[in-house]
Simulated scan of single mutants.
Amino acid sequence: MIRRMMLAAAAALGLAAPAAAQDRVTLVLNWLPGADHAPLYWAQQQNMYRDAGIALTIENGRGSGFAAQRTGSGQAQAGIVDTPAALQARGQGADLVAGMMIYAQSPYGIYWRRSSGIRGPQDFRGRRFGAPPADAARVMWPMIARAVGIQPNEVTWVNIAPEAKVASLQSGAIEATTHFYNVHYIYERTFGEDLGFVLTRDIGFNPYGNAFFLNGPWMRANPDAARRFIRTTQRAYQACLTNPAPCVAAVAGPAATSVEDLAVSWRLVAELMQDDPAGGRALGGMDAARMQQTIDGVRTAFNAPEMQPAQVFTNDLLDPAIPSHRAAAR
């Protein structure tokens, strides 16, 4: 009764009613803001998280390993992590659970200049590859090499900074590099007809890619907050797949990238998100058999401990009414 009287008095004086309690969620990106993060910034602009009772803080990342460490240790409630990297972190004791898949198709690409004499993966032997030591595809090189049909030690790896990949390839300091497919347009623009590339998913290596991983203890202690965070994120990605323009505009400032380039990159992100051609799974949903294949690859490459799909992902936080994305084929 007293509370109703106070609220009525506040309304009469033109004062705002107290805001509902918000669950604080810190999300660590896998890297700096880009097109793949556009739905997050757009949803923030639209107050979608606030309206869902989530006080969301977005932190820039420094690679999947960093995001896995921050999230697995509980310093953040959620992180965008490449799935193989998350599985490696789990094998080292991090309690991480995937709540929503972003890249249902592997984003790993290998790039080279045709003028270097490389015609395809069969010519990788004896070549200089450049990437940071923690680069996702470099970390997974033992499995990629197996798919190519060569031994992992038949290429030489050169340590370079992430932002030096294109320049190092241009200068000839390296003969090949790895990059996520969502920046494929940069290589096309830079190298034109001299560009050679292969996507690992086209040569038989297609593990799950980037996903929203949650800190396990937080998720289990706060299932409602975890569900509201994931479902809000799911709705944001659905909206941006339907109408990308306002989403890429929302991330242009944080990404310090032109809207035009972000729009091109988003189309590649949408391609990587395509999954479940027969329908029946929710957007961001994961398949146990596919996850088992990803687990098996990580175990083979890194002698990781045994783990079950049910330990590393859940579809229970997703809204089953939001259908999976089926983009046009390349």
Rank of each mutant, 00 (worst) to 15 (best):
R3V: 01
A16G: 12
P18Q: 12
P18Y: 11
A21V: 10
V28A: 02
W31L: 12
P39W: 00
N47H: 14
Y49Q: 06
A52K: 00
T57Y: 06
T57K: 09
G61Y: 03
A68I: 11
G72P: 01
A76H: 06
A78N: 02
P84R: 02
A85V: 14
L87W: 11
G91F: 07
A94R: 05
V97R: 05
G99Y: 04
Y103W: 12
S106E: 10
G109L: 04
Y111W: 00
W112A: 08
G120Q: 06
P121R: 12
R128L: 13
P133F: 10
R138S: 02
W141M: 11
E163F: 13
K165I: 07
A167S: 14
L169E: 10
Q170A: 13
S171F: 02
E175G: 14
T178M: 15
Y185A: 14
Y187K: 05
E188G: 08
E193G: 11
I203V: 14
Y208D: 03
A211Q: 04
A211E: 13
A236T: 04
A239N: 05
C240Q: 03
N243V: 09
C247F: 03
C247P: 01
A250S: 13
A252C: 11
E260Q: 14
L262C: 01
L262R: 01
R267L: 08
E271T: 14
P277G: 10
D287A: 04
A289P: 02
D296Q: 10
V298T: 05
F302R: 01
F302I: 02
Q308E: 15
N315F: 08
D319Y: 06
A328T: 12
R330G: 15
